[in-house]
Design a protein around this nucleic acid. Structure first.
Lengths: 250, 250
DNA sequence: CGTTGGGTTGATCCTCTTCAAACAGGGTGG
DNA sequence: CCACCCTGTTTGAAGAGGATCAACCCAACG
C-alpha cells in the first residue's frame, strides 16, 4: 500500500544479467540467498559492463556520483588528490569488491579510482539499487553490512597508520593481501604485487625508500622473498608475529 | 567563561517521543523531511533513552550488536583495544552523531564507546530501523548517506595520519572540532576540550608530549591560546594555513 | 644500444618518541 | 584551612626511526 515501488525492469536488455549477478556481484548477492526472481531484478539493473586498461580511470574526484562499481576482474587503487597535487592512496581493491561507497554522502566522487591492471567492472546505478533494496530486504541488509565493513576496514587502516612502525605496517599489508588472494582462490604465500613501492608507501604513510628497506629487512630475516613485484611469503607465522608483536614490545 | 552553554534550547516542549525524533535524531531525520506519520513510526522505535556518566561505557568491544545510538547530548569517544591492552582512539563524537555503524557488518561491536562527559543517548534497534527503512525510503536513503559520510570521515583521518606532521594534525583536529561546535551553535573559536592530551595523541597518532608541545608552539605563535582544556582560537586563518600549507611545503 | 621508470642502498638530517623531572589543579581527609 | 595526594600537563635532553638527498642498478622498450 505504502510506496508503490515499480519493479524497474524497463532497461530491457538483460542478456548478461545472470553471469554478472552471479560472478562479479558476489559482494552484493552471493551471501544473500536470493531467489530467481530477485536475482533477475538485480541483474536487470547491472546491465552495464565496463572495461578498463591499466592506468585508466574508473571515475575521478569531483564527478557526479551515479553508480557503484563491482569489480569483475582486475585490480584498482583509489586515491585522493591533496591541494598541492600529490596523491595519497586510500585503498587497493580486487575482484568482487565494491567501489564508490564514499561518494554516496555528497553525491560527488571524493577520490579517483584507477586501474592497476586491465580490469572489468559492473556498473550499478545507485538509485536503482536503493529502489530494489525496498523490494528485496535481504539485499538491503547485505548492503548495509558491506558499507559497515568498509568502515571497519578504514578504522583498521587508521590503527595501522596511527600506531605501527614501518616494518609492522608492511607486514600487516602483506598479510592483508595474502588473505584476500587466498579467499579468491590464489596462493596466500606466492603472488605478484600490482602496485609500485611508491603506491604502497602512500597507502602505508611511508616513503618509497622506507618501503623498500622494510622489504629488504624482511627478506634478510628470511621471512619473505622479494623479487621486484613478486612476493613469496616463506614464514607466515613469523610475519604475523612481526605485525602484532612490536606494537606490544614498543 | 560559560561559552559552552547551549545557545538555543528549543526542545522540551514536546513529549519524549517526538523530542527524541526531532532533537537527538537530527542525524537521522532532520534533513529527510518526514511527514507526521513517518516521524511517529520513527519515534516509536526510538523509545529507549539511556543516560551515561563520565567514564561510563555505552558499549564494549565484543558485545553483540543490536542497536545504533544517537547522541542526544554529551561527548563520547570510541576506541579499540589492541591485543596488548593499550587502546587507540578512533573517534570523538558529539551531539547529534550516530554511533555503532562499524558493528553492523559482524553484528558484534568492534570498539568501545565511552562517555567523556555526562551524556544521554537514544537507542535505535537496528533491525527495526531497517524494517521501517522499507516503509520510508527517504529514511533509508538518508541512512545510506550517513554511513557513507562515516567512510569519508575515516578516509580523511587516514589522510591526516598518513601524510601530516604533528602540528598540522593538531591544527586539523582543532579546526574539525571548531567546525562541529559551530554547527551546533557554539562558538567556533572558544571551547573546552573534553579529552586529555593522551586521548588526542592516540587519535592523531602522536604521543601526549608531542601534542602538548604542538599546543605550546601554536600558542607561542599567537595562533591559539591554551589554558588546560580551554582553547581560544585567535587567528583561524593562520590555523588553516598551518594545516594545508606545510603538507604542501614539505 | 640509450632511455626511462622503478627499485635498492647509503649517508645525513629532522621529527617525534622516550625518559625524566617538575608543575598545576582538583579532590580528600585531617 | 592546609597538607597531601592523584591525575593530567608542561618542558628539557637524549635517542630512534623515517625522511631526504643522492648514487647506482636493473629490466623493459623504443
Amino acid at each position: 500500500m505504502l510506496h508503490d515501488s515499480p519493479p524497474h525492469n524497463h532497461l530491457g536488455v538483460t542478456q548478461i544479467r545472470s553471469s554478472c549477478a552471479s560472478c562479479s556481484l558476489r559482494e552484493l548477492c552471493l551471501p544473500v540467498g536470493l531467489n530467481d526472481h530477485e536475482i533477475q531484478l538485480l541483474g536487470d539493473i547491472v546491465s552495464q559492463k565496463r572495461k578498463l586498461y591499466r592506468g585508466g580511470y574508473l571515475y575521478r574526484s569531483g564527478l557526479k556520483f551515479q553508480s557503484l562499481f563491482a569489480i569483475r576482474r582486475g585490480f584498482l587503487k583509489t586515491c585522493v588528490l591533496e591541494e598541492d597535487g600529490r596523491q595519497q592512496v586510500t585503498g587497493f581493491h580486487m575482484t568482487g569488491e565494491l567501489l564508490g561507497l564514499d561518494a554516496i554522502s555528497s553525491e560527488v566522487h571524493t577520490c579517483d579510482a584507477i586501474a592497476l591492471e586491465d580490469s572489468e567492472v559492473c556498473e550499478i546505478p545507485f538509485t536503482r539499487l536503493e529502489d530494489i533494496s525496498i523490494i528485496i530486504p535481504s539485499l538491503m541488509r547485505h548492503f548495509h553490512k558491506i558499507m559497515s565493513r568498509e568502515i571497519v576496514r578504514d578504522q583498521n587502516v587508521m590503527l595501522l597508520l596511527g600506531s605501527m612502525k614501518a616494518e609492522e605496517r608492511l607486514a600487516s599489508f602483506l598479510l592483508n593481501l595474502s588473505r584476500r588472494f587466498s579467499i579468491r582462490g590464489y596462493s596466500e604465500s606466492d603472488f605478484n604485487l600490482r602496485m609500485t613501492r611508491e603506491e604502497i608507501g602512500s597507502y602505508l604513510g611511508l616513503k618509497l625508500e622506507t618501503v623498500s628497506r622494510a622489504f629488504s629487512k624482511l627478506q634478510d630475516e628470511n621471512i619473505i622473498s622479494v623479487k621486484n613485484k613478486h612476493i613469496l611469503i616463506k614464514d607466515i607465522t613469523h610475519l604475523k608475529l612481526k605485525m602484532g608483536n612490536s606494537s606490544c614490545i614498543t
